[in-house]
């Protein structure tokens, strides 16, 4: 319950954070702190320096950017959950932000922090993957953008260099049906399985992504292919566990996850089609 000692630095801006990262080995960025501090309290993480980017206020925003919506990395879940722009133009993000943790966690935890943490049991990365989101990353040599599909590499492993910082997520505006079904035992639990569905213009080009079904958020390719081939949702959903490799943990065994993924996928498709 007491983290190991560390040094503390305040970043005044994203650029400053990048600079500070360059000055310290073994430094971690602190945003909302709701992934990092729990690990530090149990001493499962003991960085020597924390760089607090939580005070960089210009990284907390949701902006209408034409055909896309730009979400600042430091936007907390609760702000995203209640954001009118997201609710009207990309409601799956607003909905899923309200499914993370509990209200207190959502008041502090950030969308960007969740993406950068790369936990395959997190909801937001799955949503980003389903939306084909694009991430803006700042490093010592400037900015680059990267597709969600390329960003998530493995368990807690993302495409961020040691000196890079995630600054923005860009998601498309969606006008068609969507669903995010998070199956969990207790409300505050991590997803045993989560299924995100974002329909294109009709059910045959839906994108379907899964939480807690592998080492990173996964696209349910089999389901997407089956839908594209004109199969009905109920039969397409049967392929939800294809190519997945979920872990066994206290939230559920690997086998169980593979067994209920098709059920949840069918329900998510049905819900998306009904919206």
């Amino acid at each position: 319950m007491i983290p190991a000692p560390f040094d503390y630095e305040v970043a005044e801006s994203a650029e400053h954070a990048v600079e500070l990262l360059g000055q310290h080995d073994d430094a971690k960025l602190l945003a909302g702190g709701h992934s990092l501090l729990p690990l530090m309290k149990l001493r499962l993480a003991s960085p020597s320096v924390l760089i607090d980017i939580g005070r960089v206020s210009d990284l907390s925003y949701v902006r209408d950017a034409g055909d896309r919506i730009a979400i600042g990395a430091l936007t907390c879940y609760e702000d995203a959950h209640f954001d009118e722009t997201l609710k009207s133009s990309c409601p799956i993000v607003a909905h899923a932000a309200g499914e993370v943790g509990d209200p207190q966690v959502r008041n502090r935890g950030t969308i960007g922090g969740s993406v950068a943490h790369g936990d395959p049991a997190s909801d937001i990365p799955t949503i980003m993957l389903a939306l084909n989101a694009e991430f803006v990353v700042r490093g010592p040599t400037g900015e680059r953008t990267i597709a969600a599909a390329d960003f998530f590499k493995g368990v807690f492993e993302v495409d961020l260099a040691p000196q890079e910082i995630l600054t923005e997520m860009r998601v498309p505006k969606t006008s068609s049906g969507w669903s995010y079904l998070k199956f969990h035992h207790r409300a505050q639990d991590w997803a045993t399985v989560g299924v995100a569905v974002v329909l294109g213009d009709g059910s045959n080009n839906a994108s379907v992504a899964l939480t807690s079904m592998g080492e990173r958020p996964l696209r349910a390719q089999g389901v997407e292919e089956a839908l594209a081939a004109g199969e009905d949702p109920a039969s397409a959903a049967r392929r939800a566990a294809e190519g997945t490799n979920p872990v066994s943990d206290p939230m559920g065994s690997s086998e169980y996850r593979r067994q209920i993924a098709p059920v949840l996928t069918r329900r998510a498709l049905e819900e998306a089609l009904s919206r």
């Binding site: 149990l42 207790r186 409300a187 505050q188 639990d189 206290p250």
Partner: peptide, 24 residues
């Protein structure tokens, strides 16, 4: 309270041991 075959508690904290909340 679940233990593995070595006798290590796997439901080792409140995140894993499921005390229900008002929501349940």
């Amino acid at each position: 309270a679940v233990f593995d075959e070595n006798g290590t508690l796997t439901t080792s904290h409140m995140g894993y041991y499921r005390v229900p909340s008002a929501a349940e």
